[in-house]
Amino acid sequence: MNKAVTILEVKDVKKAYGQVEVLHGVTFDIADGQRVALTGPSGSGKSTLLNCLCGIEPIDSGFIKVNGQVFAQSSRRELERVRRESIGYVFQAFHLLPTLTALENIELPGQLIAMPTKERKERARHLLEAVGLSPRARHRPDTLSGGERQRVALARAVMHHPRLILADEPTGSLDSASGKRVLDLLETLSRELSIALLLVTHDLHSTRICERSISIRDGRITG
């Protein structure tokens, strides 16, 4: 971790859907290993911003740079590569592949970057243990509870040594106990693996694991 290095740089990003402007020139950045919370009410543009940050939605104007890669000049294939190699995503709805076991779900990003088999399997097991689910290695998602699923999703998100985790309401579908556990894990993983974190949430309690907080309202950064 080098706090001097900026992992994510967002400058004056604008985005509109048809006539409706959703982002009005958003600017902020995140340093290497830093944990930042992004809060705001529904409809404030959080999700849109996240989509732009992982290269899924194009921006109308402005500048986004992730781990040295500038998005505006990148082709779709390069953006896919960025997603595979540099970014880990945690969804509110977990989004695990239903036909894969917990261990296989975790391994998947490793396979996508052609991690050597031995290293991949070891890392996956290690991560599974780290999130406390070793006994569930061969279980499919439909036999796991919500909290367990999200923990598997966490492990998956860091499998491929990303530089940045984007977490979109990771506890939104969980009860408070599971949610707390997930947040703690998120913090631990970020800290121990030196991965920057952008945590999008509308729950202010969740921001405790972050070092800094940004709020967005009506498509503008307000704090």
Partner: peptide, 13 residues
Amino acid sequence: RNETATLRSLGVS
């Protein structure tokens, strides 16, 4: 659909 979408988000082309 969801599964496919997840794969897309993981960077599968």
